[in-house]
Amino acid sequence: MSYFDPFLHIFGIFCGVTPSVTIGLMLTCDYLEGEDFRWDEILCMPVFLPYLIGLSFISFTAFVAKFILRSRLSFIKTARSGYNEPVEV
């Protein structure tokens, strides 16, 4: 049974499947544009939602760091492309 009314219940399912749907959309579109179908990326579908919730948690931590702990974090680039390292300034 659901503690929500039917609309919110369906919405819960919508929230749960949307990220996986977008993966399917992207793969299909790229395939229709002439790229190979990237079957390996389908493996990401089941874990994509927890991954996004994890990313939201990082945003929340950033909020806590900035507005509650008032830490003055900044970042320096490491020796690897795309990698940063936080520093307290």
Binding site: L8, H9, F11, I13, S56, F57, F60
Partner: peptide, 17 residues
């Protein structure tokens, strides 16, 4: 919404009639 997402999704998936 970080707090809300798990509640809604758990409800959607695990309390199905």
């Amino acid at each position: 919404t970080t707090f809300c997402i798990p509640v809604i999704i758990i409800n959607g998936f695990f309390y199905m009639e």
